[in-house]
Amino acid sequence: MYSTKIVKAENSSAAVQAIGSSKEGKILAGGMTLIPTLKQRLANPDCLIDISGCGLEGVEDKGSSVRIGAMTKHAAVAESSLVAKAIPALADLAGGIGDRQVRNRGTLGGSVANNDPAACYPSAVMALDGTVHTNKRDISADDFFKGMFETALEEDEVIEAVSFKKPEKACYMKFPNPASRYAMVGVFVAKFSDGVRVAVTGAGEEGVFRHSDLESALSSNFSEEAVSGVEVSSDGLMSDIHASADYRANLIGEMTKRAVSS
């Protein structure tokens, strides 16, 4: 790790200010992604802005949606009775991220900001028609994720919270990469009164994406058979040493079926 300095911000505007006054400042949330990168010397920020003191933790029921603070740990979401009642699939997702240690450090905001193509949360934000609240604006899920590791966030923008719409029914099915246990394919299916949203993570070369064929099939017939009727294409899916695009396409179908029938 190269030496750097850490600044503890008291609120998000102070955090933004700190970014502005550094050359290449980086927000430090749970550090589960950032710190290993620094230890490998694969980044050399001149300043880390710790946002753990910015009051960005917590879960709120907003009626038709649930709002979760950016600094809320995965473990807290997994254990929240509010989330368990309103969107049990979201609590399940959080409880299946990494391991106990990671869940007790890693945060919702960090996961969403990082937009790792194999991360779990982005699929929930997409499928639950979420909104990312930053210090500047509200960004809808469909506009937020811009391709692998890319988001609509600007350099001086901090995620404060994410809102998730309450579905009638939802389920997240993850086929973990056996080594990292990130999603090799993760499918989040959410059924709303006006249709079904299906978001796929772990599989797309451009990161998380909505699967329109599956969405329309399930919107008209919410059943496993409807999924079987969709030919999941491998175009645009990742191929790596763990899984080919073909195999990922198969998993998308399988995980969707399981999500629908669970």
């Binding site: 694969l42 990469n177 070369e205």
Partner: peptide, 17 residues
């Protein structure tokens, strides 16, 4: 080197991108 050793899952997608 390190990018191959640690980031193999991303090599193809990154190159394409």
């Amino acid at each position: 080197g390190k990018i191959a050793q640690l980031g193999s899952r991303l090599i193809h997608s990154t190159a394409k991108k």
